[in-house]
């Protein structure tokens, strides 16, 4: 079994509207899986179904090949988008309580917590009340609680909101480390930059339906439209001059003595033919395929009908 989570035709209705419509997807083991989609698309509903907070009306969720059951909650770490802590409780006490809810034994939990608190510079706050912590520190505590019991599956819903850039980087490093240690991560976000940086696989949900799923690199390749960016030195004539039905010049400009051009080639023409033409008018400094960003793909997919 290569997929840790397998979602089969899940449908969920709330009174008045359908939150998920026949959604299927598979999350490969030891991958970072991006769950993308605009607000209200149904991401949080899907995440809640995986967490067994709510049940699907139709369809099923498999955890490592087995239909998901209550005891699986100990193998899942969940950081919800709407997250908080008991404000009047002491930080350490509360972290211990929540860790034990996830099945950790008291002394193990305490030992692990002490290590993580040290790592995130939270040790002096162990005996302080949560309300004394800044929002960023509270988020760190929540992150620690989520990953402490070393779950096989981690679900982060908008994990970076509320963090400053430095802490975002610390968090990203930790997420990658978790993956390297064997965890599978489902990660929901609007921040396409972090998707490109972290995700191996993605699924895009729009209006309750899954509209796209797959490997990030492959998807990007698929959405590449045979567009190339070229930099030339010592041009003899404008790039425009090679334009014809096979080579469409999208953009031409001069910068720092270099000519830059963006050219789309016809599907039947190979890149070598373009290079042949180009070499006639100047020295090639660089030649790159223009690959669309996840952001562009996201906007394109979501705004499609």
């Amino acid at each position: 079994m290569n997929n840790l989570i397998q979602i089969n035709s899940v449908t969920k209705d709330f009174t008045g509207h359908r939150a998920l419509d026949n959604v299927s997807m598979s999350v490969p083991k030891q991958s970072i899986f991006g769950l993308l989609g605009p607000n209200g698309a149904g991401k949080t509903t899907l995440i809640r179904i995986i967490n067994q907070i709510i049940g699907p009306d139709q369809g099923e969720v498999l955890f490592d090949g087995e239909r998901i059951r209550p005891y699986h909650v100990e193998k899942i770490g969940y950081l919800p988008e709407e997250r908080g802590l008991y404000k009047k409780m002491k930080v350490g006490e509360q972290a211990l309580y929540l860790a034990q809810l996830k099945g950790l034994e008291y002394h193990t939990a305490k030992k692990l917590l002490k290590e993580w608190f040290e790592k995130f510079d939270l040790t002096p706050w162990w005996n302080k009340k949560v309300e004394a912590l800044s929002k960023g520190m509270q988020q760190k505590v929540q992150f620690i609680i989520t990953i402490l019991h070393k779950p096989q599956l981690l679900i982060f819903d908008e994990p970076f909101s509320g963090f400053d850039p430095i802490n975002v980087n610390i968090l990203k490093d930790e997420i990658i480390k978790l993956k390297d240690h064997g965890a599978t991560i489902i990660f929901s976000t609007h921040d396409m930059g972090s998707v490109e940086e972290l995700c191996d696989e993605i699924a895009l949900i729009n209006k309750a339906k899954k509209v796209l799923e797959g490997n990030v690199y492959k998807i990007k390749k698929e959405y590449a439209k045979q567009v190339f960016k070229i930099e030339l030195a010592e041009t003899s004539s404008p790039v425009n001059s090679i334009g014809n039905q096979n080579f469409e010049i999208l953009k031409e400009s001069k910068k720092n003595g270099l000519t830059q051009a963006v050219i789309k080639i016809n599907n039947e023409v190979s890149t070598n033919e373009l290079l042949n033409e180009i070499t006639k008018i100047g020295n090639i400094v660089s030649f790159n395929e223009v690959i669309p960003s996840m952001n562009e793909i996201f906007i394109k997919k979501v705004s499609e009908k």
Binding site: N51, Q52, I53, P70, V73, I76, Y78, L79, P80, E82, R83, G84, L85, Y86, K87, L98, L101, K102, Q142, I145
Partner: peptide, 18 residues
């Protein structure tokens, strides 16, 4: 109400049933 407004409830009900 405190559990709801402090938003801790979702963390807890991912471990125990509502």
């Amino acid at each position: 109400l405190e559990e709801k407004t402090s938003r801790i409830v979702e963390v807890i009900i991912s471990s125990v049933k509502p």
